[in-house]
Design a protein around this nucleic acid. Sequence first.
DNA 1: GGCTTGCTTGGAGTGCACTCCAACTCAGTA
DNA 2: TACTGAGTTGGAGTGCACTCCAAGCAAGCC
Lengths: 132, 132
Amino acid sequence: MITAVQSLDHTPRHAISEVAAVSGLTAHTLRWYERIGLLDPVDRSHSGQRRYCDADLSRLAFLGKLRLTGMSVADMLRYVELARAGDQTMEARRELLVAHREEVRQKIADLHATLAVLDYKIDIYSGKKHSA
Amino acid sequence: MITAVQSLDHTPRHAISEVAAVSGLTAHTLRWYERIGLLDPVDRSHSGQRRYCDADLSRLAFLGKLRLTGMSVADMLRYVELARAGDQTMEARRELLVAHREEVRQKIADLHATLAVLDYKIDIYSGKKHSA
DNA sequence: GGCTTGCTTGGAGTGCACTCCAACTCAGTA
DNA sequence: TACTGAGTTGGAGTGCACTCCAAGCAAGCC
């Protein structure tokens, strides 16, 4: 889950390989997310290597969840840009999340329907002789 | 849902536009599915136009469900080819479906987890002042 | 007959989300 | 100092699942 937002450490200290390991994204994808603006420019070490802070990890975890549910990168970008624009976009962000929540609920319903069909088919394969 | 498999009408009578309407797939996609072998060659009218039978519709409905749950076209093809190969592949087909059912269950669990995160965020936007 | 609508084809094109490449730098160990 | 391994870049490439295109044919209607 997500930890309390206001207590996040902004000390830059996680190397890209480390972040790749915990986020499930590849280093390639992390750089790409930053390039397209999903992540703010990440802090660098004196030699230019990325050092992610806990706030980055937290945003990444949230984006990862959105991504898992099938939100497009374009929509994620829209959300992030709203967040960057400041407090006056809070209502818009809320609406975006509410709309997405509806989609997720719908998707869950669809999956349950499919599950029923799969159960039915598997029963046929397990017990009887008819197939399609 | 699916109707009893053995009672399906094989009279070819549905035009492609009709099938597109009921299946939710476009005519383009229907032709493409046939071309790659997801559908057996569809019957034709005397002038060469496709005429789908109820068995085609039923298979399409099933494939549509699989597709909805994120099964790749390649895996769907694998299933269809097993079905074409005859009764001795029934166990393999069953295994394929069981494995996919597990994936669907996992996906549902993931979606529920995301739903919780969304609820949490939306609560923040609705009530308090903190954001991320 | 002329027009519209719906269908046909193979092959090319599209959009998304990565994913890889070549050439390079830098840090750490032997 | 040499080597190894992890990191850097922009731009090109990949794989998937469509999606469209051009050119043409057939049927139905005025």
